[in-house]
Amino acid sequence: MSRQSPYHAAREVAITVEKHFAHYLAMARLNKEKDLAPAPHAREIEAIINTAFWTSLGHEEGIYPKISMAFLPMEGAKDAVRFSEAILFSPGNLTKLAPGVERPGTHLGIWQEAGELYVWGICYDVPSLCLVVDVFQPGLLVLKYRRINGVGKFANIAVVQGDQVKIVDMNSTSFTDCPDLLTSLIDFTTFSQSRSLNILVQLAVSMREHGRGGILLIVPAGTQTWTDSVVHPLKYTIQPPFGGLSRLMQEKVTETKELYWKNAVAREIGIITGFTAVDGATLINDQYELLTFGAKIRRAGKDMVKQMMVSEPVVGNKITTVHPSTHGGTRHLAAAQFAYDRQDSMALVASQDGRFTVFVWSPSRQMVHAHRVDSLLL
């Protein structure tokens, strides 16, 4: 299936991903879910990863490709552009096609026939649990799938970067005090998401995308205790709190209005996360009302946070206990202090290098827990 030199990480990842799809497609069928993609086999997965990796290292007119590939037959796509003749699945052909399929939600349709992979067209809507492989940047691939019923961002299975492989740990949500955001991002054990959890994910993705770094603090609605944790006077207080996203979350959405609602939600999320690019922290409450931005975090009491747990939801990762100053820069230290002082709140931190961390208080461990989730947001 693949004519180029073998990419050695591909086989290891392919076996794991094959088992993943076999298990969860079986669960979906038992739940009588419809519109399911076919199960990919290890040989096909390995060939796709191998070709995608070598494609990521090529370029067209000095620009490296960003491309998304969905493994499904032509008849499995509802909305698609179909080529009159199939195109050989090769790095050269993918590099040529890449400029025309870079927009979000656009995938090259990949299928196999007589042991050969080919590109049959371009699709914009894929079935549930469909394998998607994204070429993110040179040497960086993300393997993911479309969630059941298409709610939220695609769920990541593995991130492959050079010789480093991160397999998402489907059991990482089983430990005590796991934040809802992490559960929503992994979404292995449930086949649907609430709107609220989906919004947390979209806020995280949008916040990371502007690339400037930032802090988003989420506090309980109807409380003012958070004001003890910021420097006064606040320069950009929103009065009354801006509730565009909050109002949308309370709407009853019919099927005919769903697309309009999703577009409106995306617009409001962009408004909120745009403020996280401003120096300082942006604050919203758990009803998604914007309270302020550009706020400077300060220690609320006498105690300074001295240690915290750090974990990443990937296979083989172990929870470690470190001093907050060893994990990132001033943003991370400030967020850890806020989570320590405001134990009913959550702090989301995006770094300019793409790292993303969720800080929450762990009642069972009586310590701040920093969850690194950037491998789930790609």
Rank of each mutant, 00 (worst) to 15 (best):
M1C: 07
Q4F: 13
P6N: 08
V13F: 14
I15N: 03
A26R: 14
A26I: 14
M27F: 15
L30G: 07
K34R: 15
D35V: 15
L36D: 05
P38L: 14
P38Y: 09
P40N: 06
A42E: 04
I45H: 10
G58Y: 01
E60N: 04
E60Q: 00
I63M: 02
Y64C: 05
A70N: 07
A70C: 10
A70E: 10
D79Y: 09
A80E: 01
A80G: 04
F83E: 02
I87W: 10
S90R: 01
L94Q: 00
P99F: 14
E102F: 10
L108F: 05
I110L: 15
Q112S: 15
G115D: 13
G115T: 12
E116T: 13
E116P: 11
E116D: 15
L117W: 07
L117P: 01
V119C: 12
C123D: 03
V126Y: 11
L131T: 02
P138L: 12
N149L: 11
A155Q: 03
V159L: 15
Q161R: 04
D163E: 09
Q164L: 10
V168P: 02
N171H: 12
S172A: 12
S174I: 08
C178Y: 05
P179H: 12
L185N: 02
I186H: 04
T190A: 10
S192L: 09
S194I: 13
M207N: 10
R208H: 14
G213K: 05
L216I: 01
V219W: 11
P220A: 02
G222C: 00
V231E: 11
H232N: 03
T237S: 04
G244S: 07
L245S: 08
L245D: 05
S246K: 01
M249F: 06
Q250G: 14
K252M: 13
V253S: 00
K257I: 09
W261N: 00
K262Q: 13
A266W: 15
R267F: 15
G270M: 08
G274V: 08
A281M: 03
A281C: 05
Y288N: 05
L291V: 14
I297G: 00
R299T: 07
R299G: 03
D303P: 01
Q307I: 07
M309I: 07
S311K: 00
V314M: 03
K318A: 15
K318Q: 15
S325V: 10
A336F: 09
Q337A: 11
Q337P: 05
F338I: 01
F338N: 00
F338G: 00
Q343V: 11
L348V: 11
D353V: 12
G354V: 13
G354L: 11
V358S: 07
S362G: 03
R365P: 10
V373L: 13
L378T: 01
